[in-house]
């Protein structure tokens, strides 16, 4: 089932094409990551998809229905977390949650949600006294309060400390487990690699590619590297006994074997065992999304 479909979307601000002919299909139950540098048009694209911005050309279907025709009904299907939303000062956490839950016909129990996100003890605190991480949790809770099928998250973890970030990632994975479709924007490569089933790279409003993480990396044909320590004499033979194309380098005591084959390490270990070559400290380094981005765009990833 397709949860979200974007067809040839164009959004302009005067002369600037913020979203330039973008088409996307997001399957039900997957985490879809929209990756791109600041100013790439990620938020604009997401806000069009979430019915918050008008667009110039194209069509957006949420569960098969046109966003423009759904109107306010859209928000019974989707939940949204926006970048930089503040809340009224002098409002307590539980009051804010109660307020949002009263906006929906059949809301989720916000006390349960507060418990799930470990915020029950903050229910009586004022929202403006919360930490950044706690505030982002509130943002997710408010997005979940209408029991949506689809969640839109705009740079949820930007600005969070590493621990809060990891905690948030675990929460997002858990939401996928219960069947939610999640569309998220990020400029964090690690986050996209860790969370997303599919990754789309957006740059200057244009979509560079859409694929699974493995496919994105595989498509760039970058090399995997296996390195280990072993005596040099024995290693002279390794090259000839490896069953795949690979380059072998010696850097002092360390042997470095590189190849675009994903199962490089298996071949190396099999060969080493077969010829009973002693080795230690073996490790493999695979190309990351960051390497792939550099290869694809010719640009270094800048945050």
């Amino acid at each position: 089932m397709i949860a979200i479909e974007v067809k040839e979307l164009v959004k302009t601000y005067g002369e600037l094409k913020a979203v330039d002919d973008v088409s996307l299909r997001i399957k039900e139950g997957e985490i879809f990551g929209l990756l791109g540098p600041n100013g790439a048009g990620k938020s604009t694209l997401m806000e069009c998809m979430a019915g918050l911005k008008k667009y110039d050309k194209g069509q957006i279907l949420i569960e098969g229905q046109d966003v423009n025709q759904l109107g306010k009904k859209l928000y019974n299907t989707i939940g949204v977390q926006l970048q930089e939303t503040a809340y009224p000062e002098h409002l307590k956490v539980k009051e804010l949650c109660k307020w949002f839950s009263d906006l929906y016909e059949k809301p989720a129990d916000y006390n349960e949600l507060l418990k799930k996100f470990h915020l029950s003890d903050k229910a009586n605190n004022y929202v403006n006294t919360l930490s950044g991480g706690q505030r982002q949790k509130i943002a997710i809770i408010l997005a979940l309060i209408g029991k949506p099928h689809i969640l839109f998250l705009d740079e949820l973890t930007t600005g969070l400390d590493p621990n809060s970030k990891k905690e948030m990632w675990a929460e997002i994975k858990a939401l996928k487990e219960v069947g939610l479709t999640i569309f998220l924007t990020t400029h964090n490569m690690e986050e996209a690699s860790y969370l997303c089933d599919q990754i789309a790279v957006l740059d200057e409003g244009k979509l560079l590619l859409v694929d699974t993480l493995d496919q994105v990396i595989a498509s760039t044909q970058l090399n995997h590297e296996v390195s280990f320590k072993a005596g040099i004499e024995e290693m002279q033979q390794l090259k000839s006994v490896l069953k795949i194309e690979a380059e072998v380098e010696f850097i002092q005591e360390t042997v470095k074997v590189s190849s675009s084959h994903e199962d490089l390490i298996t071949h190396v270990v099999l060969a080493l065992n077969h010829y009973k070559i002693p080795y230690e400290k073996i490790q493999m380094k695979s190309p990351t999304l960051e390497d792939a981005y550099l290869k694809l765009t010719g640009k270094y990833w800048e945050v």
Binding site: Y75, I78, V80, L82, T85, P88, E105, L142
Partner: peptide
């Protein structure tokens, strides 16, 4: 202030008009 602090925008993404 509601508009500047994007509170109105957040409400746009709810069933409230």
């Amino acid at each position: 202030q509601y508009r500047e602090r994007k509170i109105l925008k957040r409400f746009k993404a709810t069933p409230m008009g």
